Every structure is written in C-alpha cells, then in structure tokens.
Lab assay of single mutants.
Amino acid sequence: NQASVVANQLIPINTALTLVMMRSEVVTPVGIPAEDIPRLVGMQVNRAVPLGTTLMPDMVKGYA
C-alpha cells in the first residue's frame, strides 16, 4: 500500500510546509504520495490542516 502525507501537527492556513510538519502513513482515502514530501517543502497550505489529517492535492497551493 502506498503511504500518503499526513499532518504531524496543526498546520495553520497559509503556512509554508517544513519536513517536521509532515509524516508518511498508509491511510484511506489516499492523499498526496509520501514520495512528494521533498517537493512539498516550502509550499503553502490554503486551509488549516488539523493534526493527523491526510494532505490532499487541493490543500496545497501550486501542488495540483
């Protein structure tokens, strides 16, 4: 099963992502693939992302 990117903490709206904010986990539904974590660093979320939430492509500005 493919691992997805999951929020390791509450990520406030418009926050630029850092490695410490994300972890990989096998979840359903599948979100952004864990191998894209390096690409996500520095990108901003367009909404608040609660701890444990799977990051979906539409949550990250410029990802989709």
Rank of each mutant, 00 (worst) to 15 (best):
S24A: 10
M22Y: 02
V60P: 01
R23C: 03
M43Y: 14
I11E: 00
I13W: 04
Q9V: 09
N1A: 15
V30K: 03
L40E: 00
I32G: 00
P33W: 11
T18Y: 03
I11H: 00
D58I: 10
P50H: 09
G62N: 08
M59E: 05
E25A: 10
V20Y: 12
D36W: 05
V26E: 15
T28L: 04
V45H: 00
S4W: 10
M22P: 00
K61R: 11
A64T: 14
A3V: 09
Y63N: 06
V41P: 05
N8P: 02
A16G: 07
L40T: 02
P50L: 14
V49G: 01
V20H: 14
T18R: 08
D58A: 10
M22W: 02
V41E: 04
L40R: 00
T53E: 15
I13F: 10
T54R: 05
N8Y: 15
N8H: 07
M43A: 05
G62V: 04
T54A: 14
R23Y: 12
K61C: 12
I32E: 00
E25Y: 08
L10S: 04
L19N: 03
N14W: 08
P57C: 14
T53W: 14
A34G: 11
V6L: 13
I32L: 06
L10T: 07
G42A: 11
M59D: 06
N14F: 08
P50A: 15
N46G: 08
R23K: 11
V26T: 09
E25L: 05
A48N: 14
V45L: 09
P50W: 15
M21E: 02
M21T: 04
Q9D: 13
A34M: 09
V60K: 01
T53M: 14
R23M: 02
A7L: 11
R47P: 02
V41S: 10
R47Q: 15
A64H: 13
P29L: 15
Q9I: 15
M59W: 11
E35H: 10
G52L: 08
V26C: 14
D58K: 04
V20D: 07
A64P: 06
T28S: 07
M56H: 14
Y63R: 02
S4P: 00
N14E: 06
N46T: 10
P38Y: 10
E35D: 05
S4D: 00
P29G: 12
V41C: 03
V49L: 09
L40C: 03
T54F: 10
M56N: 11
L17P: 01
A64K: 11
Q44T: 11
A34L: 13
S24K: 07
N8T: 13
Y63P: 03
V60N: 00
Y63A: 12
I37W: 02
N46K: 07
M43F: 09
S24W: 13
G62M: 12
A48M: 14
A7H: 01
M22D: 00
S24C: 08
Q44M: 14
V26A: 10
V30F: 12
Q2D: 15
A16S: 09
P29W: 10
I37T: 12
A16P: 11
M59N: 10
A48T: 15
N14D: 13
P50S: 11
R39K: 10
T53S: 11
P57M: 09
V5A: 06
A34W: 07
Q2R: 02
N14M: 04
G42P: 01
Q2N: 15
V30T: 13
L40K: 00
L19P: 04
M56P: 01
D36V: 07
L40N: 01
M56G: 08
L17S: 00
P29V: 10
A34T: 09
V49D: 01
T18K: 05
G62K: 08
M22S: 01
A34H: 11
N14S: 10
I13H: 10
E35S: 10
P29M: 12
G42M: 13
V49H: 02
V49F: 02
T18P: 01
L55S: 00
A3S: 10
A64C: 15
N46R: 10
D58W: 12
L19F: 14
P57A: 14
P50C: 06
A7M: 08
S4E: 00
M22K: 00
P12N: 05
L51Q: 15
T15S: 05
Q2M: 10
V5R: 01
L40I: 11
D36M: 10
P33K: 06
V30E: 15
Q2H: 14
G31S: 03
E25S: 08
G62P: 06
V49E: 01
V30L: 09
T28R: 01
M43W: 11
N46W: 09
M43P: 00
Q2F: 13
I32K: 01
V20P: 04
T53G: 11
V26P: 13
D58E: 08
Q2V: 11
P50V: 15
P33H: 12
N1Y: 14
Y63F: 15
N14V: 05
T28N: 07
G31W: 02
A7R: 01
A7S: 08
I37H: 04
L19T: 08
I13T: 11
D58V: 07
S24N: 13
M22N: 00
L40V: 12
M43H: 09
P38Q: 13
T15N: 05
Q2L: 09
N46V: 12
L10Y: 06
P57D: 03
G31N: 01
V27H: 06
V20I: 07
M56Y: 08
R39W: 03
P57H: 12
P38K: 07
V60L: 06
Q9M: 13
V5Y: 01
P29A: 11
I37N: 03
V6C: 02
V27G: 03
A3N: 12
N46D: 09
V45Y: 00
R39G: 12
V30W: 07
V45R: 00
S24D: 06
R23F: 04
T15K: 07
A16K: 05
L55T: 01
Q9C: 05
S24L: 12
S4N: 02
L55E: 00
L55Q: 00
N1V: 15
R23W: 07
V41W: 10
V5N: 00
M59P: 00
N1W: 11
L10E: 09
S24R: 07
I32R: 00
N14Y: 08
E25N: 09
N14I: 03
A64G: 13
V41D: 03
D58M: 09
P12D: 14
K61P: 08
V26R: 02
I37K: 04
L55P: 00
I37P: 01
P50E: 15
Q9W: 11
A16H: 08
L55Y: 01
K61T: 11
A34S: 12
L55D: 00
T53L: 11
G31T: 02
Q44P: 05
S24T: 08
V5M: 02
G42V: 02
L55H: 01
P29E: 14
